[in-house]
């Protein structure tokens, strides 16, 4: 009796496993960004790129959406997404904050001089540690937060025109 009980259990375990495998085949297994979406961003204190003053959460104006873009002059995809950022910078309802990631001040300034500066505020995270609290994997990454500092969307990798439309949709929907 006990043996047949074992048989039934093992049979169902096997069926269950196979079904899970079948479902798992069709699941997308890229980095998930969900962990951070819908949460308020952490308190941060980051230095400005141009001078030694410090920028904090409370300095964020509370009537606009903010787009936090993590970039570096040594990062090639950052060059690729730059035109999109330039386009977004024309929108007055969006506050663009650039976090310069593990970069040299001179190179960062050259980068902006050559390609244009889309940012309203430029901060500098020289050792990359402040970016960890935004859940950053690498550069470029972009986080859209609303006026209450809640994360609405997170983009990993360079922004493209689809992301551009996406961002505008979020801003003008409400």
């Amino acid at each position: 009796m006990k043996i047949s009980f074992l048989k039934i259990i093992s049979f169902f375990l096997v069926i269950f496993t196979i079904v899970v495998f079948f479902i798992a085949l069709s699941i997308d297994k890229r980095y998930s960004t969900e962990n951070i979406v819908g949460k308020k961003i952490d308190n941060f204190k980051i230095k400005f790129l141009s001078h030694d003053q410090i920028f904090e959460n409370k300095d964020l104006s509370n009537d606009k959406y903010h787009l936090i873009n993590v970039w570096a002059s040594w990062c090639l995809p950052c060059k690729k997404e730059h035109p999109i950022l330039m386009k977004l910078s024309k929108d007055d309802n969006l506050n663009l904050i650039g976090i310069n990631f593990k970069d040299k001040k001179k190179n960062a300034n050259n980068f902006l001089k050559n390609l244009g500066n889309p940012y309203n505020i430029i901060l500098s995270d020289t050792d990359g540690s402040s970016s960890i609290s935004f859940g950053v994997f690498g550069v470029p990454e972009t986080i859209l937060i609303n006026s209450n500092q809640i994360v609405i969307k997170k983009f990993i990798g360079p922004l493209d025109t689809k992301d551009y439309k996406n961002i505008l949709n979020v801003i003008y929907e409400n």
């Binding site: 196979i18 495998f21 079948f22 798992a24 085949l25 069709s26 297994k29």
Partner: peptide, 20 residues
């Protein structure tokens, strides 16, 4: 390709489906 791992074989779901 159902798991992430060090040793990457080029993987593709149709193969997985057949083997499964």
């Amino acid at each position: 390709g159902i798991l992430n791992s060090v040793h990457t074989f080029a993987n593709d779901p149709s193969r997985g489906l057949y083997i499964l």
